[in-house]
């Protein structure tokens, strides 16, 4: 069988991983020379920690990828993240839950994940039934869901520490942290979903050309709803993994997570307009951002500088992508 994956495609898919290698080389060489700490940047422990720290935004970014491939966007994930965290921690303090002992843990996880799915379904149903742009719908629900977080406990943090849970969250299996396993597991399942199943196929088709998809007899709405439910679930999963360990949520937690997730997705090459993108590349985008944050911190840069650099890199990547695409189109015309 002839392979027709052309060079441009390989270049585009490999770009994010090449970028990560450049980052690693840069921080290994320059980083160690300018380092403010005595520890080596490229140590195994440090890299494992990096993966763990990538997980909260990473799990959300995976969901954002499928929603964006489908031609939508979800701005409410940060608020969903916070609300799921509140449900997780608060539910464990309920009397009947406390009576259950450690059995309260899976139940609390279930409540939190269900919260995410329901919030996602609300977004999806509104987008489907009203036809209003997902950007507007989820902008509104971002405000609304955040309102619910504040209504729950006012300005106060919600806290509950369960040591069994903390042990689970801090555990390492085969060297990788629990959070990392969740990130990789979610990536594997979503990769299978998007590349091997009917739903994934149809999601790409709808995002690429909605009219042609409708003409092919595809029901657009249910696919939208399913993807919004998935991203809601993943936002809640991200919260569950993170707050199992920290045990305390502030009502402002998760703010701007939607923008970090979108940044990672776009850096990974997924198109804002839909129809093109990859789960694996998003994973690359997530790691690249975390590496940049951590690496710049390692050489003593403050948060403001880190944000400035990430912003500049994002613009650079998009300009490069545009140039590549334009060149591709010109080749086609000849």
């Amino acid at each position: 069988m002839t392979t027709t994956l052309n060079q441009k495609d390989i270049l585009k898919r490999g770009a994010i991983w090449a970028f990560i290698l450049v980052e690693l080389a840069f921080f290994a060489i320059v980083g160690d020379a300018m380092s403010v700490s005595s520890k080596a940047f490229l140590s195994v422990d440090n890299m494992l920690l990096l993966l763990k720290q990538s997980a909260p935004i990473g799990i959300i970014a995976l969901g954002m990828t499928i929603v964006m491939i489908n031609g939508n966007i979800d701005l409410s994930v940060g608020a969903t993240f916070a609300l799921a965290a509140v449900v997780l921690l608060d539910s464990m303090t309920w009397p009947f839950m406390q009576a259950l002992g450690d059995w309260a843990i899976p139940l609390a996880w279930g409540f939190a994940l269900l919260t995410g799915v329901v919030l996602g379904a609300i977004n999806g149903l509104i987008v489907w039934k009203t036809g209003v742009d997902a950007f507007i719908v989820t902008l509104a629900s971002m405000l609304g869901f955040r309102g619910l977080v504040f209504m729950y406990n006012g300005e106060q943090p919600t806290s509950h520490l369960n040591w069994t849970l903390v042990d689970f969250a801090e555990a390492q299996f085969l060297g990788l942290h629990t959070a990392t396993w969740f990130l990789l597991g979610a990536a594997l399942i979503l990769w299978l979903l998007m590349t091997k199943t009917v739903h994934g196929r149809n999601a790409y088709a709808i995002g690429n050309n909605r009219e042609a998809a409708v003409n092919a007899g595809i029901r657009v709405g249910p696919h939208f709803v399913l993807n919004f439910m998935l991203i809601g679930f993943l936002a809640a999963l991200s919260a569950v993994v993170f707050y199992s360990e920290s045990g305390s949520v502030n009502p402002n937690d998760g703010m701007l997570y939607e923008l970090w997730a979108i940044t990672a997705v776009v850096l990974g090459g997924t198109k804002l307009a839909g129809g093109y993108g990859s789960i694996i590349s998003t994973l690359g985008g997530v790691i690249a951002i975390q590496l940049l944050r951590k690496g710049l911190g390692h050489i003593g840069a403050d948060t403001q500088t880190v944000n400035l650099v990430i912003g500049l890199i994002l613009i650079g990547v998009l300009i490069l992508d545009r140039q590549l695409n334009r060149k591709g189109q010109e080749e086609l015309k000849i």
């Binding site: 009917v198 196929r201 790409y204 088709a205 690429n208 050309n209 998809a213 003409n215 092919a216 129809g275």
Partner: peptide, 26 residues
């Protein structure tokens, strides 16, 4: 008529991909 960014095979089977599954996968 076409999903231009998709490959030839996926375009051709688009309306009936539902019926071309083995287990959960296409």
């Amino acid at each position: 008529g076409l999903v231009l960014g998709m490959n030839c095979r996926d375009n051709m089977t688009l309306p009936q991909v539902d019926d071309l599954t083995a287990g959960p996968f296409v």
